[in-house]
Nucleic acid binder design. Structure first.
Lengths: 211, 211
DNA sequence: ATAGTTTTACTGAACGATCGGTAAGTAGTG
DNA sequence: CACTACTTACCGATCGTTCAGTAAAACTAT
């Protein structure tokens, strides 16, 4: 019914397993399956029963690996946010002209998006229904705010146009980049590096043919 | 707890009502409340009970106006899709140079997005869990495809850069525009017309200061 | 080497809560 | 008295979660 890899192909942990022929899953494997399901159906519409079905085990087996549904969400969001926040600590994001730093961060964001595609996808679709979700949204806003400050600095330097509001620019920029999770399929002809180049180029130079 | 208008402020249909002091709601009013809740919590996470609470009535009172939860979704999506599809039938979208038609459609899309903000928001967050959702997603894809053809034509005319893949351009373009539903708040200093101008300008000319 | 013990990784059944939806009755209006 | 716009009470299904039990692997002791 679905085109994802069948449960049996994922992570028999190598060594020991349960009783009969069944494979033993470890936490990262369960998390991978869970995030995939969350993205396919939405977090709320994904039941623990369906998750178990995708793993080829029972509902309660999942509870051996994680403490609950929200725990899976928390783990997944931590990974996505960690990747994004990591960009801002890199040298390329902290030193040099503002426009260069902005380009570095945007390129890094595209890289993280592609590397941890399902995890970031999950993050970008949050609604803030629970405390965990609201906490993640806050961290995401903090990241956006940091990038927004880079835009401000680049504008002050005269590198960026000043006829459009700075907040609007940041939001349109992220709108463009974040939309990648909705359509990019890794493994195609468009490589992550080329995608990053395209995004940066379209963002800075626009759609018109180069003069 | 939430900052939306309290139930009592919306649409006592004017004339006749039920029994005691309670107001009588009509279908558009129920739909408005429902779409607002769907966007706040997500469609799946929004229960009919919560909907009734927001309306200030009982769960089953909602069923007097609509045949069920999915009916509310169907009605809302019809409105959003009708608005978008309508743009493509307008003269500005069917005659003239490809770049002008593209600009017209993008501007129109921004306009519809803002005019029917909650309805389009709902559309853009669909996951395709039910037949109704899948049908709406198909219509949305058809709309995107028509715009994609405009991009192709503008490229063939030499109006748009040809060094970036046409599909990538269309997707980044929609990524930018569709992101508006995630942050635009009507009634602020940024008017819909100014927003449309900014979007078109950033998309075609990029972020660099004009030469 | 083998017996006994502990640990790992589950199974199947059941829990209370909540879900979308329904049935039957009723207060107010024309 | 018919009609509108509800009400309260409830249905079966499904939700996330828990629990007691257990087969097999891993470890320890002799």
């Amino acid at each position: 019914m679905n085109r994802a890899s069948s449960p049996e192909t994922v992570t028999p942990t190598g060594g020991g397993n349960g009783r009969n022929g069944r494979a033993a899953y470890d936490l990262p494997a369960v998390l991978d399956i869970a995030v995939g399901a969350f993205n396919d159906y939405g977090y709320d519409a994904t039941s623990m029963g369906l998750l178990a079905e995708r793993l080829g085990t029972s509902k309660s087996a999942v509870y051996y690996h994680v403490s609950g549904k929200e725990d899976l969400l928390r783990l997944a969001l931590e990974r996505a946010l960690g990747g994004l926040e990591g960009i801002l600590t890199l040298p390329g994001a902290t030193a040099g002209p503002a426009e260069d730093r902005l380009r570095f961060v945007l390129r890094g964001a595209v890289q993280v998006l592609v590397d941890d595609l399902p995890y970031v996808t999950l993050l970008l679709r949050l609604r803030g229904n629970t405390e965990i979700e609201r906490n993640a949204l806050e961290r995401r806003r903090a990241f956006d705010h940091q990038v927004s400050q880079l835009v401000d600095q680049a504008r002050a330097d005269g590198s960026l146009r000043a006829d459009v509001d700075s907040g609007t620019i940041t939001r349109l920029l992220f709108g463009m980049i974040n939309s990648i999770v909705e359509w990019y399929k890794p493994g195609g002809t468009l490589t992550p590096a080329q995608l990053a180049d395209d995004v940066i180029s379209v963002a800075f130079d626009g759609l018109h043919r180069p003069a």
